[in-house]
Nucleic acid binder design. Structure first.
Length: 916
RNA sequence: GCCCAAGUGGCGGAAUGGUAGACGCAGGGGAUUCAAAAUCCCCCGGUAGCAAUACCGUGCGAGUUCGAGUCUCGCCUUGGGCACCA
């Protein structure tokens, strides 16, 4: 008997798979193809447990599909452009390219030992010039087809660092490095015309039968189709060229409740007033402060500026409404102008209250008490489907739903020439320009004579410069190094040949990830795709990734697939590139944060508390990795300390929690110098593992200690894959023990003598049930439930007194069912049991239907829905007979106490319910 | 603020509208051992009870149903997304 040693068997079988080229994907007519893809990783430096979970799920599917006779494509690559590489260069010198490729090497080195069935020959990184050159070719094709254009759009501008900030670099409206108030500033940028496809992207969601409903719902809400009315308010004595204000509203039915007109600070009228009136200019400047995110705009205090201008109400020209410039109105959506109805919109209500504007109700609840908003009640905002009583309708019944009223209002307004019914979408065009170095350069040239000229395809790829005039690029200077590069910008105009300037914006990294799945079908083709390969391998049969990508990445990819089809790079069938989608939950972990002093504390004396040193102290937060901290609980509260400091203070070993707590309290009160870290840390609840929060768990330790199969088994067991999982280290050992047990049991069976041969049939029945359950589990992503069945079957097998042949048969089935999850151990077991060839290439076991049905069933007997007894009856016994037996049960007789039951419900094979 | 989810023992979780808690972890007891590791066996939601058993129990409050963890409505809490994190 041999002992289970992952360290010995895992490399051995990985080599065997390599030699047999089990995972090499080649086109073939003999088998149906199957393309399984997991969202590729960002090369952050180390793989984390979330990656292991993601790729193990994909690998289970891939191996299972190979076993069921499919020709499988299962590739891997890296989403390698992005800000962390530049941030690393900024923080510690070095070059984003070196940082990225080093990280990729490390991560591949960490992934290979996990034994994933990947076709590594297809690997690429999006920062490979070979890849991004083809992306530039795609861009040029899109440009030719009118799918890309330039327009102005706002960015977060840091006025101190003189640079554009990403949303995550704006913290509480301030720049992350400079601390300066961020401004919204307009720049000319490149856009994809995704909004032209709003209707189609929305409608096509219905065809995605194997996508989670919640993802489709989120996308539908994001696209946001709405029907409303576009019309204008006449402006009383407006400035030159402005005789009216065009508005769009989804609630034209509330027009009689309008009390003001609001325009965006970026509205042409506001801009005109801004030039003439310093007060307006000051307000607009203030309104443009803060980040550009929808969240920031929604949460910001609602402020307005009364322009003094008045608009006429379309239905009553004597009725004049004031025109406000308001900071919560977006120029991008609708017409950049709205009319406010305080009675039926909370935001408008708050605004009206603040500026003393009238509140006019147009409808009230259908019944019941109601305090009108104008009489001190709250804004009344029922769902559009609710029937309400109209007090100011214009051509519909007094009792009607919002929906009915909206339609009637649009019809009425159209008939009376007041406006037009318009369908609008919330989806905006996709801005792809980034004022950054580490991304795919946009392949156009700006020529004084010819304007914006596309680069010639034969000049692609336009590569990123590595140096700056022989010197390494200095990333510590804020701003875009491409913009200030001495020579890279110089390029002859592709049209006239005169000296011109390259575009220095690079592409959003979402572009990189919007077509990589197509590139995997022909990763080294000298066009973006090879149609023969794309025709064969597309679509992705099963796509697996995090729920956090439910909207943007998936929507952008759907758009790209359409655009690529238009340009002849993908077949018609690939307009929806992902046939089935599975969104796995995230791996979360609690976070440990401490303070680093940025301004030293003063000292203040308090007569009760004595010396208080925190006064005047300023800090920034620093997050620590789980392995850097000592975590403990005191009085039920989690606390943490920096591990190194604990080791130093208690060299003899980790003390008890009370001592740690005392240490924590003492350290917390210490005065710190600038730059010094606090030793006592706070523990924050679990959140998505992210690089910036340092709460990533490194699986390498687990692999080193227990082996890949344990890590794989562990991430699949316990939690359902679609749910978030809180990572805890306990349990890895249990998984390892179980695998060792399987090895031991199989080894005993393989070498054992014939036993008593009792219960062969029972064991084989269990085997067939397990085959059935595990197969269903794998098919439906119920990996945790499948694993529970495998645990149960292992117990059955261990206890079975069956003969050696039956046991060997059962053990072979166990190995095969485990093979997608723990492939190395399965191969080893397969070999011990005398299985033919590699288990990785053996056909999947099939359950025998006849072995799945039992002759008798156990039926619970309920009385009024409460279980009181149970009976064992033949499975096809008729209802009357079952009822008779049920009513004869002691418990039933006792509760009935001579009375007749009102009703007896018999669900064959399920349950009996006696109603009394 | 808006959109989308999730909430079940000490913990991770199982359960086509049909016996709530499968399977695993932690814990307790025992066997084996000079001892330990490893392994094997048993117990394990709460309250009451020697026990049989009874009552309560799937975030909270209603509802539909013979029957609700599962369906509907309202709330609470947590997580994700909100267009320049990827």
């Amino acid at each position: 008997m041999s002992r289970y040693s992952a360290a010995e068997i895992e490399p051995k079988w990985q080599k065997a798979w390599d030699e047999a080229q089990v995972f090499r994907a080649e086109r073939s007519k003999d088998k149906p193809k199957y393309y399984v893809l997991e969202m590729f990783p960002y090369p952050s430096g180390r793989i984390h447990i979330g990656h292991v979970r993601n790729y193990t799920m994909g690998d289970v599917i891939a191996r299972y599909k190979i076993a069921t006779g499919h020709n499988v494509l299962h590739p891997m690559g890296f989403d390698a452009f992005g800000m962390p590489a530049e941030n690393a260069a900024m923080a510690s010198g070095g070059h984003p390219k070196d940082w990225t490729y080093n990280n990729i090497d490390t991560m591949v080195g960490q992934m290979k030992p996990l034994g994933f069935g990947l076709d590594w020959s297809r690997m690429f990184a999006t920062c490979d010039p070979e890849y991004y050159g083809q992306q530039q070719a795609l861009f040029l094709d899109f440009l030719e087809k009118g799918l890309v254009y330039r327009k102005n759009a706002v960015v977060n501008w840091d006025p101190v660092d003189m640079t554009v900030l990403a949303n995550e670099q704006v913290i509480d409206g301030k720049g992350w490095r400079s601390g300066a108030e961020v401004e919204r500033r307009e720049l000319t940028q490149w856009f994809f015309r995704i909004s032209d496809y709003s209707e189609e992207l929305l409608d096509a969601l219905d065809s995605l039968d194997n996508w989670p409903a919640k993802v489709k719902l989120m996308q539908a809400n994001w696209i946001g189709k709405s029907r409303g009315l576009q019309f204008s308010f006449g402006l009383v004595d407006g400035p030159e060229g402005h005789d009216r204000v065009e508005v769009y509203t989804t609630r034209p039915d509330t027009l009689m409740g309008a009390s003001f007109i609001g325009i965006s600070p970026d509205h042409p009228l506001a801009k005109l007033l801004e030039r003439e009136n310093p007060e307006v200019a000051e307000f607009c400047k203030m309104a443009r402060q803060g980040g550009t995110t929808e969240e920031a705009l929604e949460k910001a205090e609602k402020l307005g500026f009364d322009t003094g201008l008045k608009c006429r109400h379309p239905f009553d020209t004597a009725w004049e409404l004031p025109v406000y410039i308001a900071n919560f109105i977006l120029m991008d959506y609708g017409t950049g102008a709205i009319f406010g109805v305080p009675a039926h919109d909370q935001r408008d209500f708050d605004f009206a209250t603040k500026y003393g504007l009238p509140v006019i109700s147009t409808f009230v609840p259908a019944s019941g008490d109601h305090t009108l908003p104008e009489d001190g009640g709250a804004a009344f905002v029922p769902p559009k489907t609710e029937t309400v009583r109209w007090t100011k309708p214009f051509n519909w019944d007094e009792m009607a739903t919002g929906e009915q009223a909206i339609n009637a209002a649009i019809e009425f307004c159209e008939k009376n020439g007041v406006g037009q019914g318009v369908t609008k979408f919330r989806l905006r065009d996709w801005g792809l320009s980034r004022q950054r170095y580490w991304g795919c350069p946009i392949p156009v040239v700006h020529c004084d004579a010819c304007g914006v000229v596309p680069e010639k395809k034969e000049n692609l790829p336009i590569e990123l410069p590595y140096d700056e005039g022989g010197k390494p690029i200095d990333f510590s200077i804020p701003g875009n190094p491409l913009d200030r590069h001495p020579t890279w910008r110089d390029a002859p105009c592709p049209a006239c040949g005169k000296p011109a300037r390259r575009e220095t914006d690079t592409m959003d990294t979402f572009v990189d990830s919007s077509w990589y799945f197509a590139r995997f079908t022909a990763p080294h083709a000298d066009t973006p795709t090879d149609m023969a390969e794309a025709e064969y391998w597309m679509n992705v049969d099963q796509y697996i990734g995090g729920i956090e990508h439910a909207i943007l990445h998936l929507l952008y990819s759907r758009f790209f697939a359409r655009a690529m089809h238009i340009c002849g790079h993908l077949p018609e069938k690939s307009k929806e590139p992902f046939d089935a989608l599975f969104t796995q939950g995230m791996v979360t972990h609690e976070m440990y944060a401490g303070a680093v002093t940025t301004k030293e504390a003063g000292t203040r004396y308090d007569k009760d508390e004595g010396e208080v040193i925190a006064a005047g102290r300023e800090t920034r937060s620093k997050y620590y990795y789980p392995e850097e901290v000592v975590r403990f609980e005191f009085n039920g509260k989690p606390k943490a300390l920096i591990a190194k400091a604990v080791e130093k203070a208690f060299p003899e070993g980790k003390p008890d929690n009370a001592t740690l707590n005392e240490f924590w309290e003492t350290e917390r009160r210490k005065k710190r110098k600038v730059g010094e870290e606090d030793i006592s840390l706070d523990v924050f609840p679990s959140a998505k593992m992210s690089k910036s929060k340092n709460n990533v768990v490194d699986p390498v330790q687990i692999i080193d200690q227990y082996g890949a199969d344990t890590a794989r088994w562990f991430v699949l067991s316990d939690s359902p894959p679609e749910r978030d999982v809180e990572w805890t280290a306990a349990g890895a050992e249990a998984a390892a023990k179980h695998l060792a047990r399987v090895h031991r049991i199989v080894s005993d069976i393989a070498t054992g003598q014939d036993g008593p041969q009792a219960g062969d049939e029972q064991l084989l029945r269990e085997m067939h049930k397990t085959i059935q359950d595990v197969t269903n589990g794998v098919d439906s992503f119920g990996f945790n439930a499948a694993i529970a069945k495998l645990y149960a079957f292992t117990n059955t097998l261990a206890k079975s007194k069956a003969g050696t042949e039956a046991k060997k048969q059962a053990a072979r089935a166990l190995a095969q069912l485990m093979a997608p999850m723990t492939p190395h151990l399965a191969e080893e077991c397969w070999q011990m049991l005398g299985g033919e060839g590699l288990i990785a290439q053996a056909p999947w076991p099939v359950a025998d239907e006849h072995m799945l049905v039992d002759d008798t069933v156990t039926l619970p007997i309920q009385i009024n829905g409460k279980r009181r007894a149970e009976i064992e009856v033949p499975k096809d016994m008729d209802k009357a007979e079952v009822e008779k037996i049920a009513l004869a049960q002691d418990a039933v007789i006792r509760v009935l106490d001579g009375a007749q039951p009102k009703k007896v419900i018999v669900v064959p094979g399920r349950i009996v319910n006696v109603v009394i």
